[in-house]
Design a protein around this nucleic acid. Structure first.
Lengths: 171, 171
DNA sequence: CCGCTATAGTTGCTTAGGCAGTCGTTGGGC
DNA sequence: GCCCAACGACTGCCTAAGCAACTATAGCGG
């Protein structure tokens, strides 16, 4: 059999993907304790850090890796659960906003500290500061290269904010 | 609003997840040109690098991040497409092997060079050697920490092989 | 040797999410 | 002011995949 499967490039990808999968699993477990799926948590987080705790559906789709129909459905669920509300956009009657409800903010506040602990425990705390920053530098380079322009979202509205989870200002 | 959302830990995770998402998207596009989904490619790769180009269904489930029922269905599809076959396990009549067919190997051989190019183009080639190895070191540390023991798979059969995509021997 | 528990694989049911098509809205060209 | 292409959101239909239930086998204890 061809041994191309042992190529170091494959190994590298394997490492990245497994680290991602492992972290995802840990996070998912903790988030579920608070009634969030990973997607829901991402959605509510993106909303919560946006001005007015709201975003237009399309922009939300751009910032998450969901399609617009995916966003419609997630917001449906979260609205049903009382975490979000839809609000009509006054300036464009086609658009609507997804807004975090007080109850949603509360759930998020309850969830966040634990989530940060998980990140520290399984990710950032695993490395000494310089190793961590080397890792992040590398990731940033890769991220910028593959940047699907998907995560950037609402690009014309906030051109320089990049990803906002890995935005230039502090990353 | 609480500004915990700007926490550098969140940023770090964002970076890792976005790099992953971006690479996934690139790879998926290229793999689809050869008729593979990402999952199918992972499955056939794991099989192809196993002795005899085969694995028991359970071991395959352990090595991929699929459940056993997930594996059943993927193998169903790939068998239907002529890429794999099921073979009864002589020593345990409950088990069955998934085996890569010659046709499957051929498709894989056609796909692999392009895939390696994609990896190089979007990932490993983005960094100079030392930055890359720093990145990989960091990822390995994280991966080992979160190691879900899922990707390790067939642990009792091949205890030291780790993940085989990021195995110790060469990673 | 018999039965009991654990294991391998499959299947029914359910949910998530994508694509493509629809409907209402907008804004530019004339 | 009118028309039409583009856009935002939503819905129908489909596939993927997980959980739990089920079947068949294995291997151990008595």
């Amino acid at each position: 059999m061809t041994n191309d499967f042992d190529d170091p490039r494959i190994t590298a990808v394997g490492l990245l993907f497994e680290a991602h999968a492992g972290l995802s699993a840990r996070f998912t477990a903790q988030l579920e304790e608070h009634g969030f799926s990973a997607v829901e948590f991402e959605v509510i987080t993106r909303l919560a850090r946006s001005p007015g705790n709201q975003l237009r559906m399309t922009d939300l789709a751009a910032q998450t890796s969901l399609s617009t129909s995916g966003v419609t459905r997630v917001v449906d669920r979260m609205e049903r659960d009382g975490l979000l509300t839809r609000r009509a956009c006054p300036s464009d009657r086609r658009s609507s906003y997804a807004v975090v409800t007080p109850s949603g903010m509360q759930r998020l506040d309850e969830t966040l500290p634990g989530h940060l602990q998980m990140i520290e425990r399984w990710f950032t705390g695993q490395l000494d500061p310089e190793a961590l920053s080397a890792l992040l530098d590398g990731l940033r380079r890769v991220r910028d290269a593959v940047h699907p322009c998907a995560t950037a979202g609402s690009t014309d509205a906030v051109p320089e904010q990049e990803t906002s989870a890995g935005g230039a200002p502090r990353a």
